[in-house]
Design a protein around this nucleic acid. Structure first.
Length: 592
RNA sequence: GGGCGCGUAGCUCAAUUGGCAGAGCAAGGGACUCUUAAUCCCUAGGUUGAAGGUUCGAUUCCUUCCGCGCUCACCA
């Protein structure tokens, strides 16, 4: 690697200025750490060993005795936990007199920043000298033993964020992290110019730096860069979260996700896993001849799902618009237009409550395949999930919330009404109307029977008695027509539709049907929805005349699928809450 | 939106029956050339989420509000 002069050498603080705050300051007592724990409730529900999110419960006198002290044994994660100034700190600072002194850390860092500037050092330089990724460095030099490194000096340059600093007065060890990889850096007073050693000593945990130096191995054999020169890349004015217990406050983790990512290995792991999941899905669909398209997010009329929309307004046209709740109706227009296989991955917005499984804006993949029916789509779902799991986790055997789940197909097909009968003994199809079904529900004590219609009673039975048991992958098929206004009627039973929902770990991860393409039936269903809306169901569909006109031009027989990306990632990541897989989940506004 | 729980130093957590709000880490000063939760000495750091109330006295009990979590409802 080519060497270059080090910017930090020249304009760095000189010995002649002992009064400089930056000189008087000292970076000491900062160490690397492992472990940590999350919010109590979730930790208890989803405990896993060696996990940041779900570690063993904390005890007051807990020590590291049962943990490996070798950072390499913990996948290079020894840097994970550091202290921060969170928003709480900011609040404390704004609170007035009482909070003043709690800002001492930031004030000390700011003083060092100003000292650097007064010495002519740019604390936020635009250019970074050449450097070697730490992952590459390890691959190249880890095989070399101490003797060889001494006999054949290997000069390298690395960059990263300082995660730990341990000083022995004349010897310092730092740990820096770059791209999820970490390496130790040493600084030896008797081998460095005074100014350089002082400069390194003044660095804070959280700073971004670049070091050049020769590789050596410590007595414990750890590969270490012995700094010969240093360049400050970006000065940190706020510390990182606590090194041992880490950052576990869920609110801070969600609001300041960057800190979560810096400090919690699992946050980083999930972010990467999500990205790889989406790209694997794209590759799968692309390979099957699907065309990725984009349809409007701002829509004059919403549809394609039963949900309340967000409402917004376009000023120029003085037009009320809705944020889409689904992409369905637009994608079907494209199939009608001859784009036979299309898909879209994007956000839908539903103006409803939040929960472990729901975020108001979430990522949906919808795809439509002409000349196919819902059975073809079942095969597509099986194959897709299988391939994605293999690509991102390397296996079809995953574990979610302690349950071992086998994704290798074929997945069973289980008609919804049959599933209900097996679970409750109630043959819903034998009950001709809502009243007779309600009587059966109450007789068998399988629920309150309060829902108004036959279909909603069926839905209640399914949710209460079947859904929680659907741990292994299964396709629940043939839903009541009233619950599926966009699906084609079943050939065998006009009360049902050709629809299925894949369930994994008791979570509905998708929804698919043979798409309704009969414009008259579609109009009748939409008008029925309109009546429901008038009767107070705010989630019922509006009638979309433009969509009906589309069907009148004829849409080919089509199989369609919607799949919740967030939930799929939850499964693959073994994440207990949707907020763990959304980088910036919806939260209430922060109050001052 | 309903129910339950939580909110204490920058972070992670203590505080007996209502009786002087503490510790570890982080921060500041000092010692230290093989540490990796380094160690040791010293220092500073708090409107106990907010506002009321009860009380001689409230982190503790009551009310309201704010935020978070779990859960129910709704949805994917």
């Amino acid at each position: 690697m080519p060497k270059r002069a080090l910017s930090a050498q020249e304009p760095i603080l000189g010995d002649e200025d002992p009064a400089s705050p930056a000189l008087r300051a000292r970076a000491a007592g900062k160490r690397g750490g492992t472990g940590g724990h999350p919010g109590r409730a979730e930790a208890d529900r989803f405990r896993q060993p060696d996990s940041i999110l779900y570690p063993p419960p904390p005890t007051a006198d807990q020590g590291p005795s049962d943990r490996s002290r070798d950072w390499q044994c913990e996948c290079g994660a020894g840097w994970r936990h550091r202290p921060i100034h969170s928003r709480l700190s900011a609040q404390a600072g704004q609170r007035g007199i009482g909070g003043r002194v709690s800002d001492q850390e930031r004030e000390a860092r700011r003083a060092r920043l100003e000292a650097l500037r007064s010495e002519g050092v740019d604390p936020f330089p635009a250019r970074v000298g050449e450097w070697l990724p730490i992952a590459d460095l390890r691959e190249r030099y880890e095989p070399m033993d101490a003797e060889r490194l001494e006999a054949e000096p290997q000069s390298v340059a690395v960059v990263g964020r300082i995660m730990a600093s341990r000083s022995f007065g004349k010897l310092m060890f730092l740990r820096i992290v770059e791209a999820g990889e970490s390496i130790q850096v040493s600084a030896k007073k008797n081998e460095l110019e005074e100014a350089t050693f002082r400069f390194i000593r003044e660095l804070d945990v959280g700073d971004f730096v670049r070091f050049e130096g020769d590789l050596w191995r410590t007595r414990t054999g750890e590969l270490t860069v012995d700094a010969k020169s240093v360049q400050l890349l970006a000065k940190s004015l706020r510390g990182l979260p606590e090194k041992w217990h880490g950052l576990s406050d869920l609110e801070v983790r969600y609001r300041q996700r960057y800190l979560d990512l810096v400090v919690n290995e699992d946050a980083r792991r999930i972010a990467i896993l999500r990205s790889r999941t989406v790209s694997a899905m794209r590759r799968f669909l692309d390979a099957r001849g699907f065309l990725e398209v984009e349809t409007p997010i701002l829509q004059p009329l919403y549809g394609g799902a039963t949900a309340r929309p967000f409402i917004t307004r376009h000023n120029t046209y003085d037009q009320q618009l809705y944020l889409r709740i689904a992409t369905e109706l637009y994608l079907k227009r494209l199939v009608t237009g001859g784009l036979d296989r299309v898909y879209e991955i994007g956000h839908d917005f539903r103006n409803e409550g939040v929960s472990r499984k729901h975020n108001p804006e979430f990522t949906m993949m919808e795809c439509y395949q002409a000349y196919a029916d819902y059975r073809d789509i079942m095969e597509l779902v099986e194959s897709m999930v299988r391939e994605i799991a293999m690509e991102v986790q390397g296996t079809h055997q995953i574990e979610y919330a302690g349950e071992k789940i086998d994704l290798s197909g074929p997945w069973p097909r289980l008609p919804l009404c049959q599933a209900i009968e097996e679970a409750t003994g109630i043959d819903v199809l034998a009950c001709a109307d809502a009243d007779s079904l309600r009587a059966a529900v109450r007789e068998k004590k399988m629920g309150s029977g309060d829902s108004p219609t036959w279909a909603t009673l069926v839905d209640d039975l399914f949710s209460d008695h079947v859904e929680p048991k659907l741990i292994q992958p299964v396709f629940i098929t043939d839903h009541p027509v009233e619950l599926s206004p966009l699906a084609k009627r079943s050939q065998e039973d006009p009360r049902l539709v050709e629809r299925f929902e894949p369930y994994i770990a008791a979570m509905e991860v998708g929804n698919a049907f043979s798409e309704l393409n009969d414009p008259d039936d579609q109009r009748a269903r939409m008008e029925e929805q309109l009546q429901n809306h008038a009767d107070g169901d705010e989630e019922a569909h509006p009638v979309d005349e433009d969509f009906l006109r589309t069907l009148e031009h004829a849409m080919p027989p089509t199989g369609g699928l919607g799949m919740g990306i967030d939930r799929l990632v939850m499964l693959l990541a073994d994440a207990p809450n949707i907020r763990e897989v959304i980088l910036f989940p919806h939260l209430r506004p922060e109050t001052s």
